[in-house]
């Protein structure tokens, strides 16, 4: 975030606070002796454009991420899942993601799916994320802010959207080549395709942070 962007933000009204629903799972919560909490690994915070919100990640994602030794969390932004609706557009939802990110015990990786990818990208412009993962972005901002603290960025899209304009926009903005996965972009929460996708994301995270 540049100084000018901060000056502008300090002059705009903050979005109305809401009680956000946050689902989280620590490696110790899995009651599995095989799984060791890795204190060096960054936590992971997920958000999705799906109206279910954080609950969408309960089926597979949180368990899988926690099993890799990371603190796994997911947030429902305003209007999703258990979080009450409140005024505010994309900026307010990005605010919700930032607020959830600073409540995570350590510097966190942001994973955004669908509209969640644009909120995560905006949040990464205000909070120094440990990494930014954009899964099948939709309604992505034309000029996303430069991520604070220069985190590594990963773009994952389904094979069908590899040539879409969203994927192209993200590629241009961050200079990263997309990683593709088989299956529908809306169906990433369970099933074999979802497991493959998640493993790819986790193995991308592993060596970096």
């Amino acid at each position: 975030m540049s100084l000018a962007a901060w000056v502008r933000r300090a002059r705009t009204p903050a979005p109305a606070p809401v009680a956000r629903e946050v689902a989280f799972l620590e490696p110790a919560d899995l009651f599995d002796l095989e799984i060791k909490d890795d204190p060096e690994a960054s936590p992971v915070l997920c958000c999705t454009g799906d109206p279910v919100g954080a609950a969408a990640f309960n089926a597979l994602w949180l368990k899988r991420i926690a099993a890799s030794g990371r603190y796994a969390a997911a947030v429902s932004v305003r209007g999703q899942g258990g979080t009450p609706a409140a005024a505010g557009g994309v900026e307010a939802r990005a605010h919700d993601v930032v607020q959830a990110a600073v409540a995570v015990p350590r510097q966190t990786v942001l994973i955004g799916h669908r509209e969640g990818a644009s909120w995560a990208a905006l949040a990464a412009g205000r909070y120094p994320a440990a990494g930014l993962v954009l899964v099948s972005p939709r309604q992505f901002p034309k000029q996303p802010p430069k991520p604070v603290g220069e985190p590594p960025v990963l773009l994952v899209v389904s094979e069908s959207e590899a040539q879409s304009k969203e994927a192209q926009a993200v590629t241009d903005a961050y200079g990263v080549a997309p990683l593709t996965f088989a299956g529908s972009p809306d169906d990433v929460f369970k099933g074999a395709a979802a497991e493959g996708l998640l493993d790819a994301v986790l193995s991308w995270l592993a060596p970096k942070q």
């Binding site: 975030m1 300090a10 009680a19 930032v98 205000r126 909070y127 120094p128 604070v148």
Partner: peptide
């Protein structure tokens, strides 16, 4: 709060 928090680590909004 909004004028005092560290720019990249906001205080809890509640």
């Amino acid at each position: 709060r909004s004028q005092t928090e560290i720019p990249d680590f906001p205080m809890p909004d509640d």
